[in-house]
């Protein structure tokens, strides 16, 4: 008998392939993560007066403020809503447990989910920036590296919030409820209802201490071409590191 052509098993890649298929079969998540942030800009752009330059905003337009907010919205939709539901479902339906009976690890499944949600967020951000630039005339972030750094830290922080919810919720229902509970504060601090830089006094100080509030301020500075203040970046980074450590520590596989 000739030596059989032994194929090398690639559990990580196999899991990523299957999870990608499943991810593309969730039109709800795809809509909220990929389409909704851009749609928000589309709607705001249709409101009269939103696209014109305003003296109160230093010559910028309202939609210009909402470009980074919409980008943060993509991260919130993926991290606080989509990811926890998927992971809690996988745990409740014992999919992580079954995976552990094969040469693939449950960690492969979680890793694939992080890659997929991260990729979807990246695509969504590109859509938002492209729509802002091409249709609304909002310039691309002038300090692109600072912008990307602040955004990446914010994304890690939000995914960690999602991981914390997914890893501790005893059921899918509770995961969804917890996700919604953190969803609104995240939206508020990101400036979805009112831009953070326009908030006054004490409120602004409090929001600037939250992960997405600090991220919103950093993104706005980078948008204008300034390297973000170190204090904003440090606040987001501290949240990102702390929440990730907590999520990893609290994660329950079953």
């Amino acid at each position: 008998m000739s030596a059989p052509a032994v194929r090398r098993a690639r559990p990580g890649r196999a899991v990523l392939t299957a999870e990608t298929r499943l991810f593309l079969r969730e039109p709800g998540s795809l809509f909220w993560v990929l389409a909704f942030p851009t749609l928000l800009l589309v709607v705001l752009g249709l409101v009269p007066g939103m696209t014109g330059s305003t003296d109160d905003l230093g010559g910028r337009s309202f939609v210009e403020l909402y470009v980074p907010v919409s980008c943060l919205l993509a991260a919130i939709m993926a991290g606080a809503m989509a990811l926890p539901t998927v992971v809690a479902t996988y745990r409740e339906q014992r999919i992580l447990r079954r995976t552990a009976t094969t040469p693939a690890r449950a960690g492969h499944v979680l890793g694939a989910q992080l890659v997929l949600h991260g990729t979807a967020v990246a695509v969504s951000v590109v859509l938002v920036l492209a729509y802002g630039r091409l249709v609304l005339g909002v310039p691309l972030p002038a300090q692109l590296a600072g912008w990307a750094l602040a955004y990446l830290l914010a994304l890690v922080a939000v995914l960690a919030v999602g991981g914390l919810v997914a890893g501790t919720a005893p059921s899918v229902r509770i995961a969804a409820a917890l996700g919604t509970a953190v969803f609104f504060p995240l939206m508020f601090t990101a400036g979805v209802w009112f831009p953070v830089s326009g908030m006054g006094g004490a409120l602004r100080d409090v929001v600037a201490a939250t992960p997405l509030g600090a991220a919103a301020l950093a993104l706005e500075q980078a948008q204008a071409g300034v390297w973000p203040d170190a204090v904003h970046l440090l606040v987001v980074a501290a949240w990102a590191v702390g929440l990730t450590a907590l999520a990893v520590r609290c994660f329950r596989w079953q």
Partner: peptide
């Protein structure tokens, strides 16, 4: 999916 996790 499971097949791709095995060598043979």
């Amino acid at each position: 999916l499971v097949a791709a996790c095995h060598d043979d």
